[in-house]
């Protein structure tokens, strides 16, 4: 079985937010929730880099170990999914997640948290594949249709890669061979008077 992974190539991401928009549209995500976001470091300065992040589908997912109702499970593809019928919206997964992936719609009195929503790697949830139930709660199940996550599929610079971890790293390794280690071009600072990657 493939082990699904995301990889964002910071040398390529141009902060177009296309992935964010594609995701929102594909899954009809509620107002105020974004499963994917693009973060820009050193915005407007030399050395600016952008990275698109969502749930990374961790191997030993911290979210799952703190969830008080134990609603997470990992699919055979290594995708971390959760059951919204059981989730109580406590927010603990958000406190534990290294990447800030879990998101919460405002629901109930005093704007208390609703049920958690996060990236599903376009793999839906525990309900029957692509049933009305599943799409209402988790959005589309593209993996069941033999397709990969839409965010990566439509990324215009192919910065965002999604799929079988082995293939993703092959593609990335090839890129590095071709262009050099990018941000890791050891020696540039000395050789070119710090005119390396930082500008």
């Amino acid at each position: 079985m493939a082990r699904m992974k995301f990889l964002c190539d910071a040398e390529r991401c141009v902060e177009c937010n296309g992935c964010v928009t594609a995701c929102k549209n594909e899954h009809d995500i509620p107002w105020g929730v974004n499963r994917r976001r693009v973060v820009t470091i050193n915005d407007g300065d030399p050395g600016e880099r952008s990275i698109s992040v969502a749930c990374m589908h961790c191997s030993e997912a911290p979210c799952a170990t703190v969830c008080p109702v134990d609603c997470f499970y990992t699919t055979n593809d290594g995708v971390v999914l959760h059951d919204k019928d059981i989730c109580i919206g406590c927010g603990y997964c958000f406190y534990a997640c290294p990447f800030g992936a879990p998101q919460f719609p405002d629901a109930g009195a005093f704007g208390s948290r609703g049920k958690m929503d996060k990236c599903t790697f376009c793999a839906g949830g525990p309900d029957e594949n692509n049933s009305a139930e599943e799409s209402r709660k988790y959005g589309r199940n593209r993996l069941a249709e033999g397709k990969l996550p839409l965010c990566a599929e439509m990324c215009s610079t192919k910065a965002l890669l999604a799929g079988d971890g082995a293939k993703v790293s092959d593609i990335f390794r090839e890129r590095i061979m071709y262009r050099g280690a990018g941000a890791m071009q050891w020696g540039w600072g000395v050789a070119y008077d710090k005119q390396g990657i930082k500008g």
């Binding site: 890791m184 600072g189 000395v190 990657i197």
Partner: peptide
């Protein structure tokens, strides 16, 4: 030898 990548 500052490594800008490492800094980032």
């Amino acid at each position: 030898n500052p490594n800008p990548g490492a800094d980032l």
